[in-house]
Amino acid sequence: MSDLQRERLAYKRSRSRRSTAVALLSTVVFAAVLWFSVRRAPGWPRVRQSFFNLDTAWRTLPAVLDGLWLNVRVLVVAEVAILVLALWIAAVRTLRGSVWFPLRALATGYVDLFRGLPLIICLYLVGFGLPGLRLSGVPNDPVLLGGIALVLIYSAYVAEVFRAGIESVHPSQLAAARSLGLNHEKTMRLVVLPQAVRRVFPALLNDFVALQKDCGLISVLGAVDAVRAAQIESSTSYNFTPYVVAGLLFVLLAVPSGRLADWVSRRAARREGAR
């Protein structure tokens, strides 16, 4: 190594040591300011008592965890239904030709309606309106009805994500598939969708995390999920800590999804070669 290069490396090392030190110092200062200003707030002792009470947290954890297990089950079933329904809607929306106009219009109307409708109103309409009809065979289980409302709203969002992916696949890929004699259905299934899904995977996981927490909204229909369990616990103890417990559990639930997204995109990049 030449002296010139040695001198340059030494300079780069000293610069990087300097920036590490600056980052460390500013983080410590920032955390200290935050800590002291919160602690100096006049209401801090009361807030700590009613939101961050360790005893209450520990005592109510089992009940909230029980509720969370319901959220997880709703999440898994709803997500599968959403992916299937959304894929159908997206595929219908990309059909060309006037024969398909009624189906296409239906799919477009569905997306417009359920993407615009607030989830909470949809929950009320499905959760209280459907059983109110008193038709035979209509369920009145709040978990099932809440799940249906989530599927209705989220499949509209996810359908648009799929459609964006489908339309991002270059027309030359379609031409290549058709030139080999593949029909429209096989072209979509074997050539377009695998590429489309790979491209929108991060967006899909984003919607999945949003669904994770919106699963907590089925509590408004009376289902005893994590949020409802926290509500019951807090009303008996006059303490809001159970809500914080439920909130932290939802956050913990979301962390693996983020790591999964990173892992999947890394794996895809490795397989297809660096772009």
């Binding site: 031409a175 030139s179 297809e272």
Partner: peptide, 11 residues
């Protein structure tokens, strides 16, 4: 058919 831009399926 063989195309100018190859059009192989990347996946």
């Amino acid at each position: 058919v063989v195309f100018q831009a190859f059009n192989l399926f990347p996946h």
